[in-house]
Design a protein around this nucleic acid. Structure first.
Lengths: 341, 341
DNA sequence: TTGTAAGCGTTATCAT
DNA sequence: ATGATAACGCTTACAA
């Protein structure tokens, strides 16, 4: 069992095999129309037969494109396993599909610290043709800066006017509104909002939450607004004071399913049952949502479509085209955590 | 706002700027000792100042290494979002860290169909120096074949004797044993095992489950063994017959936290409470586990260490070194889903 | 200690 | 419709 394999075939080898020049092989494999259809077919068959594949590195060096997309996930502080949120793996999976279907590879970078320079780094060091940032997070300016430098970058997140870069994201205001409305319409009046409003997406969900109250001539209690973090352990710490405190609450709009789940647990420990005492709405409709106890009413984001758009727009930008930001519709999924029976 | 940026600096530019030859720049940036320390420092400073970075594509073409690791996630059986399991995102995050700390990029491929050829494809098409496969899944033979072809490949999964390839994984037998023992020692006697035993890792967990019974002179009821799938929706379908059927059970060993959570829900709907009526142990200790209702007793895998080893061994293989497989210890984390009070 | 020059495997520009 | 030939930007013998 010798681990050494033969040196891989080169285009020169294929040219010799086919009895043509290298240029012809190159063109044939690129489906260049100036090559006779017959020659093209013959060379393609020959390549398949011999298992020849174009060396992507050489191709990149010459053609100046990498056929690779960089996907960047902001992740400040290691302890905060932001990436552990099922949302990230969901979108990652869909991105991988979308990239692969266009023949693109996907380079994954997890970004840990507050060094904002990383946005666009993959492109500027010619490792990728474009960058997709998942969650504008606190890096708003860094993304905008990269975009202004001419780096093709698309971010998943909130559509921010005059942001100076392209975004794909959900209609977060509508989401927050739908969530709060579902609770208000079942007669609940003391709603909490849980989520870190420094993030643009969350801020917009909160706006929807406020708007749902306003439209009904109601007001919310600021004491019930908590900047809960995404990581379950931290979310728990953020939520405890709210539940232990004296303020009443009978409904919860959470910025993610994970936060909603943490809240259910914290309430449970305090002897408050969901949905009897407190109705809860999550966000994302991650796979766990339907299988928690009780099942979670939540706002579904169209992540698959979002991922496709991210890839499509990123590649258009890389090709020098103009593109506009997109806001995708969301959907309320009603389950046990809000039902009144 | 003109999107066009200046053409990036090349090594030739830097050589001119520094008043030396290209080779000197190359060597200086590579910390080659034959270059005078002073020259080295000067050139490195100059590069930093001008924001010059070596073109990785050109470097790869010449040096014949990509400084990239391919990470492959098999996704057959359950065409559904296997990737949605929090376990994958956890290990992905840690792999990204481990790769980055060695200056390696991480290429992500999600593999969907039964085309086994993909293992090693990234290496054989010279896109990556080595492959890391997450979950040997049903691709056992494909991984072994790639390894025999001389492709540097390391898989996360069960250590299989004579597999012919390198694995890093948990001591799954110990995990299954610990889980079952925890339930048996609290007096439960009718334990179910939930997990697809076609997967080598799960099969080993089941062996541990059996061994825990055997050691105590007990036997398990084969009617309580269900090949539950990982995806929550499917897991649910797999579990329903068990709970609706006439067989009694008072304990559950699940092959993943997500399956455990699904089981709690299904039991709940049938009016059976956890842990009062049925004790449950999960596997993985994913971030949700501590925050479900009730919190999940589970087997913790050392995923961080695992990811580091995967990268380390993959790079050693790529360098032509011999390496051995590693089996990591697991730990029982006791929470509410098994407590008897 | 540094410089010269060849070559990695493609694609693109000319020719023919 | 196809072929020669020159880059692409770097690393590494070999020379000096």
């Amino acid at each position: 069992m010798n681990g050494t394999s033969d040196p891989p075939l080169t285009m020169k080898d294929m040219a010799a095999l086919a009895g043509v020049s290298e240029s012809t092989v190159s063109r044939a494999l690129a489906d260049h129309p100036t090559i006779a259809a017959k020659t093209r077919a013959r060379i393609q068959a020959l390549s398949a037969e011999h298992g020849y594949t174009i060396n992507p590195v050489a191709r990149s060096l010459r053609s100046r494109q990498t056929r690779t997309l960089a996907v960047v996930i902001p992740l400040f502080h290691d302890k905060a396993q932001h990436l552990s949120d099922p949302f990230f793996s969901l979108i990652l999976g869909h991105l991988a599909d979308a990239a692969a279907s266009r023949g693109y590879d996907m380079l994954l970078s997890k970004v840990v610290d507050l060094d904002y320079a990383w946005v666009g780094k993959a492109v500027e060091t010619r490792r990728a043709d474009a960058v997709i940032v998942i969650g504008q997070s606190l890096a708003h300016e860094a993304i905008a800066a990269a975009a202004h430098r001419g780096t093709p970058v698309v971010a998943w997140g909130a559509k921010v006017d005059a942001a100076g870069y392209t975004t794909v994201g959900s209609d977060n205001r509508m989401g927050g509104d739908l969530a709060a409305s579902q609770l208000l319409d079942s007669g609940r009046r003391r709603l909490a909002f849980l989520g870190d409003r420094r993030l643009p997406e969350i801020a917009q969900r909160f706006e929807g939450f406020v708007e749902a109250h306003r439209r009904r001539g109601l007001t919310y209690d600021p004491a019930l607004v908590v900047d809960a973090r995404f990581e379950p352990e931290e979310a728990r710490r953020d939520l405890l004071p709210l539940v232990r405190g004296a303020v009443q609450l009978d409904g919860v709009v959470a910025a993610s399913d994970l936060i909603a789940i943490s809240m259910i647990q914290v309430l449970n420990e305090a002897g408050r049952r969901t949905p009897r005492d407190v109705g809860i709405v999550g966000f994302d409709d991650t796979p766990v949502a339907a299988h928690t106890n009780p099942p979670l009413t939540t706002i579904r984001q169209d992540i698959r479509r979002g991922a496709e758009l991210l890839v499509e727009l990123a590649l258009k930008l890389a090709a020098g085209d103009e593109v506009g930001s997109v806001e995708l519709p969301v959907e309320l999924i009603v389950r046990g955590s809000t039902s009144s029976d």
